[in-house]
């Protein structure tokens, strides 16, 4: 990953990742839902700057996710796009945990009139190749 090169050292926990540190690895404990994994919030923080809060996107740049066939179809391809990125769609695999990705995708599949099945973190984990970012891991920064 050539783009991830400067400050291979700079240890940066994302706020979101730090916030879920206690919960993502404790699936067996039935705790109150973690606000940091609230689907609406995960979408707002990570996706809405491009796809917009209303999921309508911006013509010619950011596709609408509301009413989008791709989003409503089987979740595998959607998970793949969020993990790996594609053109102007960034890769999230190094930054978001399985639980966060599942939350974001659940939001886009169940909002704005979309009604497809929610996505579980395990489904994301099954599609991910390579290691998921650890909630408490240091974050590698790319700078130029």
């Amino acid at each position: 990953m050539r783009a991830l090169r400067f400050l291979t050292c700079l240890p940066l926990l994302t706020a979101a990742i730090a916030a879920v540190a206690q919960t993502t690895h404790a699936p067996t404990v039935a705790a109150a839902p973690d606000p940091a994994l609230d689907p609406t919030r995960v979408f707002s923080e990570n996706c809405a700057a491009c796809h917009q809060e209303d999921g309508k996107g911006i013509e010619g740049a950011f596709p609408a996710l509301a009413g989008d066939k791709f989003v409503l179809a089987g979740p595998e391809q959607v998970i793949h796009v969020v993990l790996e990125g594609r053109g102007g769609m960034p890769t999230f695999k190094a930054d978001l945990t399985d639980a966060q990705i599942a939350a974001a995708i659940t939001h886009i599949r169940t909002s704005w009139g979309n009604s497809a099945a929610p996505v579980a973190p395990e489904t994301v984990a099954a599609i991910r190749t390579g290691e998921a970012p650890k909630p408490d891991a240091t974050k590698i920064i790319s700078a130029h």
Partner: peptide, 13 residues
């Protein structure tokens, strides 16, 4: 600031 990835996406909102 000089931010990247999801943080850049978040701040840009």
């Amino acid at each position: 600031y000089y931010n990247f990835g999801p943080n850049a996406a978040k701040v840009s909102g």
